[in-house]
Amino acid sequence: MIRRSPADFIRLLIPALSLAVLLAAVFWLQPRAMSYVGINLLFNLAVPIALATVAQMFIMAVNDLDLSMGTFVSFVACVTATFLRDAPLVGVVILAGSVLVYAALGVVIHLRNLPSIVVTLGMSFVWAGLAVLLLPAPGGQAPDWVRALMTMKPPLVPIAIVAAVVIAVVAHVIVMRLSLGVLIRGVGGNERSVERAGWSIVAARAAAYGLAGLFAVLAGIALVGLTTSADANIALRYTLLSIAGVILGGGEFIGGRISPVGAVIGALTLTLAGSFLSFLRISPDWQIGAQGAILILVLALRLVFNRVEKRGHGR
């Protein structure tokens, strides 16, 4: 029933292995983390990062790059902590409008054949400006239902893990099972052939951007649910984190080669790397550097695996 090539399997295997190794290392350093509460604490902040990573993945599927992800998630966080709480209807309209703006960006980028890097760079200023207008100083408050959702305590499995699995499954269904997902990946793979086959490339790009906007909105809401208040700069590092997460999860910049499950695993790995370093008691000066080193290490591992895989094919 499931037809999956070995290459796809290997593509998922490496991110999963690096996550497992990192998790084992954390448990070895701090056995107390091996509990319901411990695991929830470890992966709590991974939920918004995973959503942002999936959002970035949709953009990368059509060979584009979104440099405004961080500022957009910050903007959504500000809307969530202000309008969505005080005037839910207005909040929903604003968020729906911003998803439409994302879809419109896809249309404009496609029709005018603009570099996505520059357009999203410009948009990053716009989102940052809007966020500053909404919340000039850190503040606001998370809507109660968001807070309740993010602090839910399901039996046996912590909410962070449940959320990660749900995100992965939903993204997987959209990208791998729906014809829309196939179309989006096709645009990344070979735009011309998709066009010749009679599909609308504009619609596919708009859909990819719209889906990215939708997931980024969810990321912002989830983030506020965890932090309880918002700030215009709350998620600035998400731009680079989301790109790194997609790559760590086996995605590529061009060719529509992406893996939704991998992207979620990549986001979990990045989050865990931070906790791992604090458990190692590395001097705070070198924490960022060590995070870079872990990133390099995982990618080096991937190279080794890819080589082994190629040899296995007898080439």
Binding site: G122, F125, V126, W127, A128, G129, A131, V132, L133, P136
Partner: peptide, 11 residues
Amino acid sequence: GAGIRLIMTGL
């Protein structure tokens, strides 16, 4: 203000 300035820069 800073907010408007950022938005204008982006636009």
